[in-house]
């Protein structure tokens, strides 16, 4: 684990008002994420966890408050899979590396799918996979991404025990390599030295 006091800041949020349809869900949120950190965002349904993540990945823009991301280096696995059901997992993953600009050979892409247990489903249309398999395929994006900051929205949904264990290990390994993880979740990942941000009780 990286010593957090010397670690570089990857994300700084100060006085951000998280709003949905002109309603302020929580005002003046401040948060810093450094290399090697895991931040778990907890809170009841509808409290604004996913909305906060969308501010972080930049698909929502805030009229007030500042959000500074050190680099564009971010990978997002959201509640929607981001996978086209007509294309195969392999094609979806290739498209993902194309839009994020991370160079990966076909072999590396296949290796990533094998890691998440989709080795024999690489050429099956994604729409024909089960909910858990689609989820695994979404998580394979983490393997093929160069991003330092992982932003995960309810990553444990639909995952079985072995996939959950794989994700926990992947997160630990990523933190050891100076990466950071922000994760909105109801069930704690149970990993050491995690910071918890409880929303809705400010």
């Amino acid at each position: 684990m990286v010593n957090t006091t010397n670690a570089k800041k990857l994300l700084t949020i100060s006085n951000l008002n998280v709003e949905v349809a002109d309603k302020v869900l929580f005002p003046n949120l401040s948060l810093q994420v450094r290399e090697g950190e895991l931040v778990e965002i907890h809170g009841a349904n509808g409290v604004g966890k996913s909305t906060l993540l969308r501010y972080i990945i930049g698909t929502r823009r805030s009229p007030n408050g500042t959000l500074i991301r050190v680099s564009d280096d971010v990978v997002y696995v959201g509640q929607k899979s981001g996978l086209n059901p007509t294309l195969t997992p392999l094609e979806n993953l290739r498209w993902f590396t194309q839009i994020t600009g991370s160079k990966r050979t076909p072999k590396e892409l296949m290796g990533a799918l094998m890691q998440v247990g989709l080795g024999s489903f690489m050429r099956t249309p994604t729409g024909a996979l089960s909910a858990g398999q689609i989820r695994r395929c979404g998580l394979a994006k983490l393997v093929v991404s160069d991003a330092k900051l992982w932003v995960l929205d309810e990553p444990l949904t639909s995952l079985d025990a072995s996939a959950t264990e794989w994700l926990r290990e992947a997160i630990s390994e990523h933190r050891n390599k100076n990466g950071a993880v922000i994760c909105a979740t109801h069930a704690s990942l149970g990993l050491p030295a995690a910071t918890t941000l409880q929303l809705g009780e400010l």
Binding site: G58, T59, D72, Y76, K80, G82, N84, P85, W95, I99
Partner: peptide, 12 residues
């Protein structure tokens, strides 16, 4: 629908 657009907007 499937969130590909969200990824596209976030990354491109």
């Amino acid at each position: 629908e499937d969130g590909s657009l969200e990824l596209l907007v976030a990354h491109q």
